[in-house]
Every structure is written in C-alpha cells, then in structure tokens.
Design a protein around this nucleic acid. Structure first.
Length: 544
RNA sequence: GUUCCGGUAGCUCAGAGGAUAGAGCAACGGCCUUCUAAGCCGUCGGUCGGGGGUUCGAAUCCCUCCCGGAACGCCA
C-alpha cells in the first residue's frame, strides 16, 4: 500500500464520519515545494453539497483526521487547499521498495490481463519504409511495451496488404524494370512505383536470373511474389534496426484463402444491411453512424478494400481479442466510422475498436516541405534517417510527443542537433550513475540488504523520492489513456532531479556509511531510468 | 460546405478543472587543480489565436469566430 492509498482511505473515512457523505478523494503533486508533498482539493468540491465555505470544511477535516504514521503535517492553505507533508519514513520508503522488488514496483496491474490486439505500421509492401512511417512505428511499439508492463496481454500485429491493386502495380513495375535492365524497351505502368529500390530490385533479378523469366506466362505472379518477399524483408530489417518488434504478421491473402472474406460477405448480406444499386453492393453503414453507405462490391464485380478490412478486423476479434487498437495516420480518419459501423452490423460493439490517430509528420528540408509519395519515388528512407541521426534520438523524438501533435521534422535541424537531443540528457543521467556506482565499488562500497537513511539529506532528496514514487502511477496513466509521451516526460524530470542532486553534493566519498546510503538511492533511480528507456526503445548506456 | 486534429515563450513541445502557466533549444551571465561540463546555477522571454459563457477557481469545460493541417472515391 502506497502512502497515497493510505491517505485516500484516511480522508474518505474521516469525511464520511464528519459530514456523512461519500466522496472520491484524490491527491495531486503540488508544483511548489512549499505546498508539501501532496495536496488535496476535496474541500472545494464538498463546498457546494455541504453549503459551507471550503476553507472551514478543510479546517474541520484536518482537525478530524485520526493519528497515523503517514502524515507529518497537514495544513490548510489558500481558500481550502489541504497541503500534506509526508512522514520522512514514507518518503524514503520508495527506495527499499524498488531495491527489494522492482519487478512488482514497475508493473502496476492496470490491465489485469485484458487482451488487446494492437495493430500498427502495416505499411504496404510496395517500397521501403520512409520517414513518415517512423512515428507510427515508434509510437506503436512504445505503447505495446507500456501496456504489456502494465499487465495487459498485448499482441502486436502488422497487417500485410498483399492482395490488392498495389501488389499488381508492384509486379508490373518490377517487370518493367526487369525488361529495362535487360535492355528491352518497356513502358512503365501508369500507377507504377518509381522508387529507386524497385528499380534496383528489377536490376538484381535481371542480373541473377538473366532472361529466364522473359517469356514466362506467369511472370506477373512470380514477380509479385519476389517483390513482396524482398520488400517485406526490407521493412522487417528497418523495423529491427529501430527496435520495433511484432508478434505477428497477418497477410491479407490468408483472409481469402481461409474463406473469411466470403464468410463475412455472406453474413453481411444475411444481416439485411446490404442492398444493390447501380450494379454495386452497398452496406448500410449510415444506419450505424457513418456519413453514408459504403460499397462492398463494385459494379465491376471486384471487392472494394473495405470488405477484406472488415473481415480482418473481425478475424482479430475472433482470435480472442475483445479490444482492438489500430494506430492510423490522420489521413485515414474518415475510415473509422465505416469500420465501426461494419463491426456493429456483424454484432460487435463499436467501442471494441479503438483507433489512435497520429498526425502526419511534416518533413522540412532547407526550409521547404518535402512531399513524399511511393508512387512518385520521392521518399526519404527510414534507413537513411537511422544512419544519419540514429535510433535513440528518433525513438525519443517520436515517443516524447503526444500523438495529436502536428509535428515538423526539420532535417537540417535534426542533424545539426544530433548532440542536443533530450535523449542524451536522460541517457547521460543513467551513464553518470553507472560511473558513480563503479567508483563506489572501487572503494569497496557495494549495495547491501540493509537499507538505511541516517545520513541522507532528505531536504534535497524529497522531490526526487516523491518523483520516484510516482513512476507506477505515470505508467498506469500512460497505459490507460494511451498517452505514451508521459513516460519520456517523466524520465526527463527524473534526470533533472538527479543531475541537480549530483550538483548539490558530492555523492561518493571516503565516508563509507554515507556513500552506501547514496548508492542505494542511486541504484533505485538507475533502475527506473533503465526501465523507462527500455519502454521507449532507447538504450541505457553505462558509458557515454 | 461537412467531419477530425492543432494554435501556449523567438523555435520544438509539456501542462487538459486548482495555488505565481513549465521544460528543452536559442540569447545573456556565472560554475571544472574535486565522483563524466552530453552537467549545474542564474537572467531574459507569455493579451495560453480572438470574443462570449459555466465555475469559488478556466490554458483546461461549453458556444462562436479566425488561422493552419488532414479527410470527405464503385482508390487503398
């Protein structure tokens, strides 16, 4: 039980006894240190129902609190704030908690095993990953790690669109490049992919296979397969370099092979929510909140993209994941309502699908926006960004901003500021602690099971220890609200508090008793830093 | 025109009912014969896009307007 839990119970019981009302008491961390370790505003919210001034309620409440071991002092301030100073033992308690059982400390049971299937990236395998994809990749992977640590049962999945038109265009583009590489005049398809990677792949095939495929009637099928494999491998390689992990790659083609698409189509028809108009089959999504009805089967007889997508999402639910999270770019926002409507028609709840929209990143180079498109071949490869800037700054950069933020990525600035990225500030704190622990070790000071606080200057350390104590709360909130940027922000603040402490006193000295106590605190800080950095996919170096 | 986002310090962004709105970068001034100066301390910097409203209290909630981004297809 944390001091906060104890306080909450204490307050709620006292309020119930004094005023005969039930209320949910929360505490906040005051910005100003002179306002104590925790602040409570419950007196304000009680003022109206009790028809009393908040100040007098607060005073009565403080006076009525029973004796306890948690509170050192509780004062009424301003119009009715209750500022609480915790007992020193309570503040320090976080250190032994972390050292004795960090595994429990870092894993708040927010999810309680709830199963979530998180889909992200899902870039069409028609080219290499570009910078625009990096945000989704970093955000999704970080969210998965946070959710998992908060005891959600998460499956991360990449949906491979390997059945649609784009793959046909990819095959045609490859054939054209192959022909050109063999010196044969070939027209490039209208919707083809002009990327240099596609060109290189066509040349590679020509080099390795010569003219073997030239008159093969199945050349499109073969090249489609070669292209898919090569490009997907490339994508997986880039993801690996960015430390983005997937549990599963789900291929659109399996939806057709296993009959899921036909099955869903049959059930949609049977639902009574379909009708034929102008030779096309429509689904009445407008009756479930969509702007208008959507076409499932074109008058040409081809399926639209949405049909396999409905089948895919239902498939995810059927695999035993009652909650689905999709991370999509905002350019897909119009797509949410129709998908939710479709799932409702199939008998599911719209709320089972949660879509996190990430704002598209605008890339600026030399003061101008760089427009990217795989068709035109004008892309900035993620692999180049990884080469130039490095994994850690990229991951931190994307993890540190709320998904809703419209971001500009200035390439000139990114390179110039390679060494000014906040990620190094946090990593430096970790490395500095390693160095201190090394020094202590050389002096023969090693962590022990007995954790004391005789010599520690708690005046200096209190903000740091308070902040440490809130780590599980931060994780829990980040998991619940899917606001991953709270973690990097927390880590930055923790690093600041540590660097400040480092500047204020010499930590490892000839005084072995004092050094040992500081070693314990340092170890606790370092564990949280290392764990937090892992969550955002950033390395925690011992030396910088 | 409709829908979804955003507008907070010169720049990049936190803060999302609480006390005097914060951090990084940039600018300026201090701090290394001492544990890593990728650090610390200080200064400068704001009509929280504008205007109404709700509230004891609004950057935060509601309404409205302005500006910017995205989407509105029998493309995916």
């Amino acid at each position: 039980m944390t001091p906060q839990d104890t306080l909450k119970r204490l307050f709620e019981t006292t309020i119930s006894e004094l005023f005969d009302v039930q209320t949910d008491v929360t505490f906040e961390q005051p910005k100003d240190r002179s306002h104590g370790d925790l602040a409570c505003t419950v007196a304000f919210s009680l003022a109206k129902p009790l028809k009393q001034a908040p100040r007098s309620i607060a005073e009565a409440l403080v006076a009525g609190l029973p004796g306890n071991e948690v509170i050192a002092s509780a004062d009424v301030a301003g119009g009715g704030f209750i500022n609480i100073t915790l007992a020193k033992a309570q503040i320090f308690d976080v250190v032994p908690t972390i050292l004795n059982d960090f595994d429990t400390f870092k894993r708040p049971n927010t999810g309680n095993g709830a199963k979530i299937l998180l889909e992200f990236v899902s870039v069409n395998p028609t080219g290499q990953m570009h910078i625009g994809h990096a945000r989704g990749a970093a955000s999704g992977d970080t969210l998965a790690r946070i959710l998992t640590q908060c005891q959600y049962d998460v499956l991360t999945e990449y949906y491979v669109n390997d059945a649609g038109n784009q793959m046909a265009n990819l095959a045609k583009s490859l054939v054209a490049r192959y022909h050109q590489a063999l010196g044969i005049q070939a027209d490039f398809p209208e919707d083809g992919y002009h990327g240099a990677d596609i060109k290189a792949l066509g040349e590679k095939i020509a080099q390795e296979a010569g003219d073997r495929y030239l008159n093969d009637p199945d050349i499109l099928t073969i090249f489609r397969e070669i292209g898919l494999t090569a490009l997907l491998d490339g994508i997986k390689h880039d993801l690996g370099r960015a430390d983005v992990q997937f549990d599963s790659f789900y291929h659109e083609t399996t939806l057709y092979k296993d009959g899921h698409v036909e099955d869903v189509l049959a059930r949609l028809k049977a639902s009574g929510y379909t009708y034929t108009k102008d030779g096309a089959l429509f689904l009445k999504t407008s009756e479930k909140g969509d702007e208008k009805d959507r076409v499932l089967i074109k008058s040409s007889g081809d399926y639209t993209y949405i049909l396999p997508d409905i089948a895919y999402h239902e498939q995810k639910l059927k695999r035993g994941y009652p909650t689905l999270i999709d991370i999509l770019g905002t350019d897909h926002h119009g797509y949410i309502a129709r998908l939710k409507a479709s799932l409702e028609i199939l008998g599911y709840e719209a709320s089972q699908l949660e879509v996190l929209l990430i704002q598209l990143v605008r890339v600026i180079r030399d003061g101008e926006e760089v427009k990217m498109s795989k068709r035109s071949g004008n892309t900035l490869a993620l692999s180049d960004l990884l080469d130039d800037v490095g994994k850690d700054p990229i991951r931190y950069f994307f993890a540190a901003r709320s998904l809703n933020t419209h971001m500009d990525l200035d390439l000139n600035l990114a390179e110039k500021q390679r060494n000014e990225n906040p990620v190094y500030y946090v990593q430096y704190a970790h490395a500095r602690i390693s160095s201190l622990l090394n020094k202590a070790s050389l002096l023969g000071v090693e962590p022990t099971a007995k954790i004391t606080r005789e010599t520690l200057n708690l005046d200096i350390l209190t903000p740091l220890l308070n902040h440490l104590r809130h780590y599980p709360d931060v994780l829990s909130k980040a998991a619940k609200t899917r606001e991953i940027h709270k973690v990097p922000n927390y880590l930055h603040e923790l690093a600041t508090l540590f660097h400040r402490w480092y500047g204020e006193e010499k930590l490892i000295t000839e005084d072995r008793a004092a050094s040992l106590e500081r070693v314990h605190v340092l170890t606790a800080i370092q564990r949280v830093l290392a764990n937090g950095l892992t969550l955002i996919g950033v390395d925690a170096p011992d030396v910088m």
